[in-house]
Design a protein around this nucleic acid. Structure first.
Lengths: 211, 211
DNA sequence: TAGATTGTTAATCGATTAACAATC
DNA sequence: TAGATTGTTAATCGATTAACAATC
């Protein structure tokens, strides 16, 4: 169980967990690194190294006991103790995220959204509250939510980002297509859907050219 | 202008473009690698190397002419000639993507969505059509769209993925939280929002522990 | 010419893969 | 014991950074 896990390894861990959960519900008990590697299209040494970073219950000749491996992955990924997050910007994307059920099984609870537009205020389909930004400071004095999802338009993004940080947000998942300037102790992860799709399109074109 | 640009470099290119467009509208004409590096929080050698892979109009002492650099980036990223894409799964996320305006300035045109659920069929807010999956084969015989966005629930994802590929899709942006099995010539990019947020939460926790 | 800034070559760093010893 | 499979050490590969020569 290493202390410093590379970020590439971390990115793969949820995929292991998802696959293991699936075959566990199918009744399988043990699995080898080779079988995992084949299913997820990875190298088998890589699988062993990745898994060794969070678990140590592989048995030579037998492989890994799936139930234990799932537990170790869930422990590391923190999917057991739920963490709160808030959404800024109640546009279509913000609302889609607010009501997305998939966060729960990753240990994340979106408590609500904030938006400057009064027309957006109210309650979402799944019962989450959407309020004005002006309520966030007092809200977060009580709730101390540290994770924020930024879904506002490009031109407000930096301003809202600053506001979030002023009121206790420490980590931001940024969907606005700009680089945010933040203090060194704040974590930002850019999740730019248009960029991702555009890069996919480039890859496709260059692939077609090279054959 | 290198031929093989590393994927990390590719991921940074859209951020350069966005920043350059911004300062260009602010009236700036030239910029140095150092200034870009500072604004985007990167190393200046990295900036020069990244930019050298798509452009060659940096002038010692002067820096880069912004208008040319923008052009070179847009050319490389293909933001000039528009590419079509389709959405599978007209849930909240699928609809948010379908109506998201940001794709256009990245040269991407989402032409419509397909969903098995008849209740979803019709026209989106921005006027895009949502039809049944059964129309896709004939649709794509005519249109030959190669890029698909997969937004269906986890349990249908592999099935719909196969269906997309059968009907001419070559590159898939996958929002379902599973590993898709595809032939070698198909490009898949996983875009898992819950995983991203969960990893952000882990990073935050480990940061808090280490101080 | 002198100084600033680019572009590139070499050095470092980190991640992946290969080889293999440990062990159930 | 023999064979399969893990875990780890060493080798390779690729990306970042440092050093520096080219040049406007």
């Amino acid at each position: 169980m290493a202390n410093n896990i590379s970020s590439n390894t971390k990115n793969r861990l949820p995929f292991y967990l998802e696959y293991l959960r699936k075959i566990y519900t199918e009744g399988q008990v043990n699995i080898s690194s080779g079988a995992i590697a084949q299913a997820l299209n990875l190298g088998e040494v890589q699988v062993r190294k990745d898994l060794a970073s969070v678990s140590s219950n592989g048995k030579p000749k037998v492989g890994y006991e799936i139930v234990n491996l799932i537990k170790d992955l869930e422990d590391y990924l923190g999917y057991k103790d739920t963490d709160d997050a808030v959404v800024f910007g109640a546009g279509k994307l913000g609302m889609a995220l607010l009501d997305y059920q998939g966060f729960l099984e990753c240990g994340l609870n979106l408590v609500g959204a904030f938006d400057v537009d009064k027309k957006k205020h109210g309650v979402s389909e799944s019962g989450k509250i959407i309020e004005g930004n002006e309520y966030f400071p007092s809200f977060n004095k009580d709730n101390k939510v540290k994770i924020g999802i930024l879904c506002v338009p490009e031109n407000n993004a930096q301003e809202v980002c600053d506001f979030m940080i002023q009121n206790g947000i420490k980590a931001i998942l940024n969907f606005a297509p700009i680089h945010l300037n933040v203090p060194k102790d704040i974590i930002v992860k850019n999740e730019n859907l248009a960029y991702s799709l555009a890069l996919l399109s480039i890859e496709l074109k260059s692939k077609e050219k090279n054959k």
